[in-house]
Each structure stands twice: as C-alpha cells, then as structure tokens.
Amino acid sequence: MPITSSQVRKVAQLARLELTEDEVQLVSDQLASIVTFVDQLGEVATDGVEPMAHPLDIHTVVRPDTEVPGLSREQALSNSPNHNDECFLVPPVMAR
C-alpha cells in the first residue's frame, strides 16, 4: 500500500517530528512496507467476531481508593531536562 508524502507529513506533524524532504521519501517507503505487512491481517475473515479490547481474558482489575506513597518532589523533578525548585520548566507555551 503506497503512503503519500502528504500522509507522512501529517503524521510527522501529529508526532511533532520535523522531517527533511529526503526523510519524507525514506519514511514513505518504510511505512508502505510495514503497512503492507500488517495489511495481511485483512485477509482473515472476521465477520461476527466481537472486537477485542484486550488480548488477556481478564477484566475489571481494580484497586481500593487508598493512598500509596509516591515520589518526593526532588525525585519527581530529577529526571527532567529543566526544572526549578518546585516545577518542571518548559519553553514558553504562550509565545506563538
């Protein structure tokens, strides 16, 4: 199944990926190949088969509404590329 470059650009935009023209061509071919592979599933007759939400045959796994100790703020912030004493920091969102 061919994948057009505009489809690649749209998906890249949704994933916030910036691709060069060469990369768009490369990814189009790669995506076409993986989508063709997965498309084989379409050959299986699935009329009357209930859609499956999960491969495991279990359901309704719940926990009680009780607190469990989490991370300290120091731990929570420690993996982030940028933070101050209290918060994660990200480039200004309001600047368009």
């Binding site: 100790p69 991370l71 918060c87």
Partner: peptide, 23 residues
C-alpha cells in the same frame, strides 16, 4: 476520590507543586 484514577497519589487541592506524583 481520595486518590487518582489510575494510581494511589492523593488528589487534595492546594498542595505544594509536584508533591503528589508517582511514576
């Protein structure tokens, strides 16, 4: 609820930033 939808962190309003989190 006392805790979040998918983890046991508290939901209380007004806590100091980033003190009610977990992985």
């Amino acid at each position: 609820t006392r805790t979040k939808l998918f983890c046991g962190c508290p939901t209380a309003f007004g806590a100091s930033p980033n003190t009610q989190t977990c992985p």
